[in-house]
C-alpha cells in the first residue's frame, strides 16, 4: 500500500455516538468478495430506508464526494469485521475524526490506509457544529499532526506507530519477513519452555 502524509477533501459530520461495525456494514453483506467493492453497503441501514430509497437527510447521501468523516465517541466498536473498513475505504473515506475508536477497528483502519484520528470531545463537537449538514474542505497533515479547516489549525492524536506505518505505507507481512530467524529461534524456545503450547498436526 502506498504511504501518504496529506489527506485533503470534503469533510462531513455524522453526529452519533457508538457507530458500531454492525452499522458500518450489516452482517448480511459480508459474504461478498472484496473485489466486488463494499462502498454501496457503507452504513446501509442508516443511508437507505427499508425499501432501499436513500434517506435525503443522511449527510453521506448528500455528499457522496466526502473524504473525511467527523463523528462521535466509540466509532467502530463491536465486531472485528474488517469489512467495516472496506466499506469506508471503498466509499472514498480517507480519514475518520472522533473522540475514540474501537481498538480492533482502529487497527484494521491503519492496515487499510484509513486514518483514525482522535480529537478531544469539545473539538469534535465544535467541528460538528461548524459543519452542520454541509460539507467543507479540510486538510489532515500526518507529518505535523494537525487538521486545517478554514483558518483553524487543530492538533489530533495518533499512535506514533500508526503514524509511521501510514506515512511509509508499511505492510506487516513484508516487515515480518525480515525477522524469520528470530521467529524460528523463538518457536524452538517456546516448544521447550511450554510443550503444552504445541500441537501435533493432522495425520
Amino acid at each position: 500500500m502506498a504511504g501518504f502524509s496529506i489527506i485533503q477533501g470534503p469533510a462531513v459530520a455524522l453526529p452519533q455516538d457508538n457507530i458500531d461495525t454492525d452499522q458500518l456494514i450489516p452482517a448480511r453483506f459480508m459474504s461478498v468478495p472484496r473485489k466486488d467493492g463494499y462502498g454501496p453497503y457503507l452504513l446501509h441501514d442508516l443511508r437507505f430506508d427499508a425499501g432501499g430509497t436513500p434517506r435525503p437527510e443522511m449527510p453521506l447521501n448528500r455528499h457522496a464526494q466526502a473524504r473525511i468523516l467527523v463523528t462521535r465517541r466509540n466509532f467502530g466498536s463491536g465486531s472485528s469485521r474488517e469489512a467495516a473498513v472496506y466499506a469506508l475505504v471503498d466509499f472514498g473515506i480517507k480519514a475518520v475524526l472522533a473522540p475514540s475508536f474501537g481498538d480492533i477497528f482502529a487497527s484494521n483502519a491503519v492496515n487499510n490506509g484509513l486514518l483514525p484520528a482522535r480529537l478531544p470531545e469539545d473539538r469534535i463537537e465544535a467541528m460538528i457544529a461548524r459543519l452542520g449538514d454541509k460539507a467543507e474542505e479540510m486538510t489532515v497533515d500526518l507529518t505535523d499532526g494537525v487538521i486545517r479547516i478554514g483558518n483553524e489549525v487543530i492538533p489530533f492524536d495518533l499512535d506514533p506507530i500508526w503514524r509511521l506505518k501510514l506515512i511509509n505505507g508499511w505492510d506487516d507481512i513484508d516487515m515480518t519477513a525480515s525477522h524469520g530467524p528470530a521467529i524460528a529461534a523463538f518457536r524452538a524456545a517456546r516448544a521447550k519452555a511450554a510443550p503444552y503450547a504445541m500441537l501435533d498436526g493432522m495425520t
Binding site: 473498513v85 480492533i104 487497527s107 506487516d172 521467529i183
Partner: peptide
C-alpha cells in the same frame, strides 16, 4: 480478536 489483515499475517507468520 483481530481483523482480516491481521488474520492473514498470523496465517503467514504465526506472529
Amino acid at each position: 480478536g483481530i481483523g482480516a489483515t491481521e488474520v492473514a499475517h498470523v496465517l503467514a507468520t504465526q506472529t
